[in-house]
Simulated assay, not measured.
Amino acid sequence: MADLSATLEQGPVRLEPLAEHHLEPLRMACAEDQDIWEIYPVSMLDENFDKAIQTFHDTSNWVRFAVINADTGKLVGMSNYINPDPMTKVTEIGGTYIAPSVRGSGFNGVMKQLMIDHAFANGFTRIEFRVDTRNKRSMAAVLKLGAQHEGTLRKNRVTWTGYVRDTAVFGLLKEEWTR
């Protein structure tokens, strides 16, 4: 997992391993979209932010990134490798949030490309994405990357609001990656 934790940069996107100095700017970035958190498994708003960060710190099998707009130097979100397993060579990319200011600009595509390239360069052969089926924008973005919808886990996760969500599972194999 240590090999996955690196600074990655291309064009306007810079991913830095999440550190203490990123937390307050991340809190501010998360607050830029009050409505999106209804479809996330956890809330990163207000008093929920500190609880979520503590939960992340207690989870050792995630590689966390602060997402920076390299053009402005502003922190605009976060993303993660979740449960990277060097034995099976599978990792998930998820827990991603980007601020409205960079959505729809191609920023997310570059960010995911950096993460996918980096995972495959580090020996992983499969990347998974798990998305709440209510999050149509994220599902469309994952499909644009070339990932395949492999199925939907019905009512498999309780979110912070108490909603029991369905989770769409997507997979991307190294040999399918054409970027």
Rank of each mutant, 00 (worst) to 15 (best):
V142N: 00
V164H: 10
Q148Y: 03
A2I: 14
H149M: 08
P86S: 11
G94P: 06
D35S: 13
A66C: 11
Y97M: 11
I53K: 03
I93V: 06
P17V: 01
S5Y: 07
K51T: 15
V76F: 07
M1T: 13
T59D: 08
T7I: 13
Y40P: 01
T59E: 07
I127P: 03
L45D: 09
M115D: 06
L172C: 05
V158Y: 07
Y81I: 07
T7Y: 08
V142A: 01
D50F: 03
D58M: 13
V158W: 06
M1G: 14
G171L: 08
T133Q: 06
K174H: 12
E47D: 14
F49T: 02
L143Y: 01
E176M: 02
M139N: 06
T178L: 09
E24N: 12
E92G: 08
V164E: 13
L153A: 15
L8P: 10
P12K: 13
T72S: 14
F170P: 00
L75C: 08
R137Q: 09
A121D: 14
R126K: 13
T125R: 08
D117A: 05
N83Y: 15
A19D: 13
E150Q: 11
P100S: 11
E32W: 08
W62L: 15
I39A: 02
I68Q: 12
L145F: 00
I127Y: 01
H22I: 04
M111D: 14
T125Q: 10
A66E: 12
I68C: 11
L4I: 09
K155E: 15
Y81F: 15
A141I: 04
F124T: 06
D3N: 12
S43E: 02
R27L: 02
E47G: 05
E176L: 00
I93R: 00
G106V: 01
H118W: 06
F107N: 07
V67E: 13
N80Q: 06
Y81P: 09
M78Q: 15
D132H: 10
L26R: 01
E16G: 09
A52K: 11
R154P: 14
V13E: 08
I53R: 01
D35C: 06
V110T: 15
T178E: 12
F124K: 04
S105V: 04
I98C: 14
C30E: 04
Y40K: 01
M28D: 07
L18C: 05
A147T: 07
M111N: 13
F65T: 00
S5F: 07
D166Y: 03
Y40E: 03
N83E: 15
E24L: 11
R14P: 04
L145A: 02
V164K: 10
N156L: 02
A2L: 14
P84W: 14
D33K: 11
G151C: 04
T96K: 00
F120V: 00
I68G: 11
K136Y: 09
F56R: 12
R64T: 06
L15P: 03
H22V: 03
C30V: 04
P17A: 02
L173Q: 12
A147Y: 02
F65K: 01
E38H: 14
M78R: 12
V131Y: 01
G94S: 06
